[in-house]
Amino acid sequence: MATIAFLGTGLLGSAFAEAAAKRGDTVTAWNRSADKVRQLEQFGVKAAAKPADAVRGASRVHLVLKDDAVVEEVIAAAGPGLAPDAVLIDHTTTLPGLTAARAERLKAQGIRYLHCPVFMGPPAARNAQGSMMVAGPRALFDSVKDALAPMTGRLQYMGERADLAAVNKLFGNAMIIAMSAAMADVLTIAQASGVAPADAIDLLKLLDLNAMVAGRGANMAKGNFAASFELAMARKDVRLMLETCGARPLAVLPAIAARMDQLIAAGHGAKDASVLGIDAVAPGSAA
């Protein structure tokens, strides 16, 4: 088994460290709040006072931190203890541009680095479920893939482009957050209509969201807005939703209505409601 370190033991980092120790790895961990590390001692995780102490002798160093600024701070603090052949495995959700710059700088410094964000919560991390994406040098990924595989239900190599996992993490989180906001508005419509929250959520189970992504989403990506649900009709439905909710706070429907009004005014009312994405796939929009 391996000697590894975890820098950052919040909810996700502590779950990863616990699972690694239970698999038989020798695990040392550091966290700014020392109490969070000491809670892991019951699983055999050793607590370190400083990042450099945690990484000393580790073949892999897993970063599970808040943001880019903290990643930079912790990598710098860990540097004096980092072994020359250690691999930094960064699970932090970060800005793609900063991720690419970080990877390039670390490569120039001779530090081996992979960006490996995940789609999983603490229970999934404890039980090797969910997904882990990896971006960085293929040879480096190949050298650690067998060690990463037991951490996740699905290990997906995204390619050598250093920021590609970061971008895809934002894709996924955008969908998760947007769906949470949409469900909040569904519950508001239910509240305004005297329908139990659980009944409203049960109704959503009738919708095949995967099919919507495969169908409408694929058409959007191609710029195909041939109507099956006209934008003007969809706007009417959003008006009914807003009127039903009255003065109750809503998460996304007012912004959707405003964007629909812009597109209808621009002459897109007879196109499919997916024309909401027209600016994202217009020629030159990727620049």
Rank of each mutant, 00 (worst) to 15 (best):
E104Q: 12
A139Q: 15
A77L: 07
A100R: 00
D142F: 08
L242G: 13
A214F: 09
H268C: 05
A58D: 05
Q39F: 01
L106Q: 02
D202K: 14
I89S: 01
L114C: 10
D142Q: 11
P137H: 08
A227N: 08
A196D: 14
L276N: 07
S285I: 10
A20C: 11
Q39K: 08
I176Q: 05
S33E: 09
R161P: 02
A221N: 05
A86W: 01
A103M: 00
A17Y: 00
A247N: 13
G81E: 01
A214G: 10
K222P: 00
F229Y: 08
N219M: 09
S14L: 10
K236L: 10
G79E: 14
N168Q: 08
G24M: 08
Q109I: 06
V71F: 01
D53T: 04
C245G: 14
V64F: 02
A184W: 03
A247G: 08
E41P: 08
H62N: 13
K107Y: 05
A257K: 13
V238F: 06
R248F: 04
I256M: 15
R126G: 01
K169Y: 11
L253C: 11
A266G: 04
P249R: 07
I278R: 15
K107D: 12
A184E: 12
R32L: 09
R112G: 06
E18A: 09
A234H: 14
M179W: 08
K205Q: 15
Q109C: 07
I189N: 07
A211F: 12
P137Q: 14
V281H: 02
N210M: 09
R154I: 03
P84F: 11
A221S: 09
A76E: 15
A48E: 12
G284S: 07
V55C: 02
P80H: 06
L250A: 04
L12T: 00
H115K: 02
G44D: 00
G81D: 00
A258D: 13
P197W: 10
G172W: 07
R23E: 13
G269Y: 08
N210E: 13
A103I: 01
V45T: 04
L250M: 15
K66G: 12
T92W: 01
A76F: 05
V186Q: 04
F171K: 03
A258V: 03
A192Y: 08
I201C: 11
L253I: 15
A184L: 11
A21R: 01
A211R: 14
L203A: 14
D53V: 04
I75F: 06
